[in-house]
Design a protein around this nucleic acid. Structure first.
Length: 274
DNA sequence: ATATTCCCCTGGAAGC
DNA sequence: TGCTTCCAGGGGAATA
């Protein structure tokens, strides 16, 4: 599913085409993780114009006037497509937002792990209460190795599980956690509380680097992820360890291994990740 | 509070 | 070909 680079790619595409469109109706074609009421959404959004689209962590916010925002999460298989009204639907379409100009935004989600809901913002440009507990954005300047070092004190969880915890830092999922740890030369099973300040600085830098490079390529398509235009991302070709079990380590020539941490498959090179 | 496990749901790939 | 099993990028609840 979408991690930060994939969500960012979707948000940029939506932000290029949705602002200025006025909602005429919202239709439901199926259930999602959270129940939603299309009739209620229609009543509250019809006639309202989209101001912009933003991202926080892996959440998408579509802003409307009156400190109202549509909050969406893509889960594992969520996709947005922009179509013309009348275009035949697809198998897993769950929600359609109809606009007054005859275009239509469809949300499809095979596994239904995603959700959409309407949220009130505490102030314009702010975030709904649902997002209060999230950790820092990794691409902000203020996110540094020292921030990670401070929150890792005494923590015994594997460093990979730790950096995937959205209360510690947002946006890092299973793919980019393995990739960042590889870049930093840190074994993913090490207890978070035992990393040195220098290792945290390297890891923070690698997290920023891999996320930025992935955004530049439009994200990674491993299985289902697609951009709003229905195309694949490009960063899967740049992955160095994720999904490469048995392959050759580009750095030391050793064999990439896989293991399981926190119930998630994890890829690393035992030769150069110590 | 933190760590671990399980579960939500569906489809695709691999194994037999 | 067809059936079975396993696995999947997230996140939240339940459990020690």
């Amino acid at each position: 599913m979408p991690e930060l680079p994939e969500v960012e790619t979707v948000v940029r595409a939506l932000n290029a085409s949705l602002p200025g469109k006025t909602v005429s109706a919202v239709c439901s074609m199926g259930k999602l993780r959270l129940p939603f009421d299309a009739g209620d959404l229609t009543r509250r959004l019809a006639g309202r114009k989209i101001l912009g689209v933003r991202r926080r962590a892996k959440y998408i916010l579509v802003d409307f006037p009156g400190q109202l925002a549509l909050l969406a999460h893509l889960g594992m298989t969520g996709r947005f497509r922009l179509e013309t009204t009348g275009t035949p639907g697809q198998k897993h379409d769950r929600v359609a937002f109809l606009f007054e100009d005859g275009s239509e935004l469809r949300y499809s989600d095979a596994r239904r792990f995603g959700f959409i809901k309407l949220a009130c913002l505490p102030r314009p440009g702010g975030f709904p209460g649902d997002l209060e507990r999230l950790g820092p954005e990794p691409l902000e300047r203020s996110f540094t190795g020292d921030v990670l070092l401070a929150s890792a004190a005494g923590r015994k969880a594997p460093v990979k599980t730790f950096i995937m915890d959205q209360k510690i830092v947002v946006g890092v999922g299973n793919i980019y956690a393995s990739e960042a740890l590889y870049g930093a030369g840190i074994n993913p099973a090490r207890p978070a509380g035992l990393l040195s300040p220098a290792e945290w600085r390297r890891l923070a830098a690698e997290i920023k680097g891999v996320l930025r490079r992935a955004i530049r390529k439009g994200g990674s398509t491993i299985r289902s992820y697609q951009t709003v235009a229905g195309t694949e991302g490009g960063f899967q070709r740049s992955l160095r360890v994720y999904g490469k079990t048995g392959g050759e380590c580009p750095r030391c020539g050793g064999r990439i291994e896989s293991t399981r941490l926190g119930g998630r498959s994890t890829f690393f090179c035992p030769g150069c990740q110590v």
